[in-house]
């Protein structure tokens, strides 16, 4: 029983470390930021997830007490990783890319158009001018 637990914990640690390594290697190797963003936000999150699950199993089986902190950390990381990725991509788009360089969408990129407040202001102005 002890051996199975140790095997499981060791496997999870090694898996998590390999995932983190692959994510960082991808960030080093890809050609531009939009592809570079892809590697760490997925792989590194999985790497930390592996380490956290390993720690949880370790303290549950070999030390004999349940710890909730890992769930808290992994939940926080899984919630915030997409937000940071989105923010980095958005800041990069606004600073380094022009709307012409982006692939076409049906109704354009909303992040480049005016804010809803300005749009409604313009709309109300045009409707009053019609009257």
């Amino acid at each position: 029983m002890h051996l199975i637990h140790e095997l499981l914990i060791s496997g999870l640690i090694v898996l998590g470390a390999i995932f983190a390594l692959v994510g960082s290697y991808g960030m080093l190797k890809f050609p531009n930021l939009m592809t570079r963003l892809h590697a760490p936000t997925k792989a590194t999150t999985l790497g930390v997830g592996g380490a956290l699950v390993a720690s949880m199993v370790y303290f549950l089986t070999l030390e004999g007490h349940v710890s909730i902190h890992e769930v808290l950390i992994s939940l926080f990381l899984f919630l915030t990783a997409p937000i940071t990725a989105h923010f980095i991509a958005k800041a990069y788009m606004h600073k380094h890319l022009k709307p012409k360089q982006l692939p076409k969408t049906q109704s354009g990129w909303s992040t480049y158009s005016a804010s809803p407040a300005e749009q409604s202001h313009k709309h109300s102005q045009s409707s009053t001018s019609h009257q």
Partner: peptide, 15 residues
């Protein structure tokens, strides 16, 4: 670019 540096620091924190 500066965004590359921010991404690197963010990944560093996670690691």
């Amino acid at each position: 670019t500066d965004m590359d540096r921010i991404l690197a620091v963010d990944t560093m924190v996670i690691n």
